Simulated assay, not measured.
Amino acid sequence: MKEQLKEIIRQVYHKEKRNLFTFLTGAGISSDSGIPTYRGTDGIWVKGTQFHKPEEFGTLKYFKQHPEEVWQYALFRKKMFETAMPNHSHLELAEIEKMLKNRFHLITQNIDNLHRRAGNTRLYEIHGNNREIKCSNGCKGISLFPQEIKGKDIDEDLTRNDIALLTCPDCGHWMRPNILWFDEYYDEKTNKKFSALKVAKNSGILFIIGTSGATNLPLAIAETALKYAACIVDVNTEDNNFTELIKNKKNKLIIREKSTEVLAGVKEIIKDLNR
């Protein structure tokens, strides 16, 4: 497997066109930082929230009916993200970006900010992020999350000041996290949909790391990369929707190892090519 991966990277490294190195990451890459995955055996969306199925709770419709409850959960997750630290996989990707420069692109489904904290800058956060808020009523503009609002324990209520800071100054409706919910569609403004697909089109290799491919845009990114002859490297601990997509394709490599070990190997291969 190592020699096959080395040869794939070498070929892409020396290509003149469609030669981007693209990494698509999901919740699995942050599990070593103590953040639960979504659809694994211990995942947030498998267990659900205390009273609701995730597909009901994680929607704009539910937010409009129960905004304080959703914000209470969002601030609990905010505290979880802020206390977590980037792990070795995040740090390896930051090092790989330094070596590849503008040939590197990172597309992540994660909203936890750990890739940025690790040092990645060529980054597309296709499920939004935990640093911003926007009006739930559709007012234009995206704002930074108010610094005065801190992450909370799961049983902590919003304060009056929290509520005031989470009120749209233009229309008076609730502000909401700038993330993608189950009943919403990908767009360019929040989700970088078309930018991510353009990157996929020009990729020579697409690494898929820590994600099952349970949402539309990640699968479309892989399909686009395949259409334009990229090699897909599926780095996950178990088979998933991407595995099903690529299992009969020639341009693929399926790796069932921890992402940290694989990324360390990728970094060393690229380091040798850079010499």
Rank of each mutant, 00 (worst) to 15 (best):
T37M: 09
L197P: 10
E268T: 14
V46T: 15
I154H: 07
E132W: 10
E69R: 13
F57C: 08
E95N: 11
T59A: 07
E69D: 06
M175R: 04
S259I: 05
K2M: 08
A214T: 13
K267E: 10
P177F: 01
G213W: 05
L93T: 02
G210R: 09
N251Q: 11
Q50L: 13
A118D: 05
T37Y: 09
I205F: 09
H90G: 00
I142M: 05
D42C: 09
K227Q: 13
Q72Y: 05
E125H: 04
A222G: 14
A225D: 00
P177W: 01
P67H: 08
E55G: 10
T224I: 11
I209R: 07
K249G: 09
S203T: 13
F21R: 11
I209N: 01
L93H: 02
E95D: 11
P177K: 13
N274F: 06
C171R: 02
N120Y: 07
K61F: 14
L20V: 01
E261W: 11
N240S: 14
T22E: 02
I44R: 06
K271E: 12
Y62F: 15
L24R: 00
A84G: 00
E56H: 14
L263S: 02
R275H: 13
R256K: 15
P146I: 03
L253Q: 01
Y124I: 03
E92M: 15
P169H: 11
L206C: 06
I142L: 07
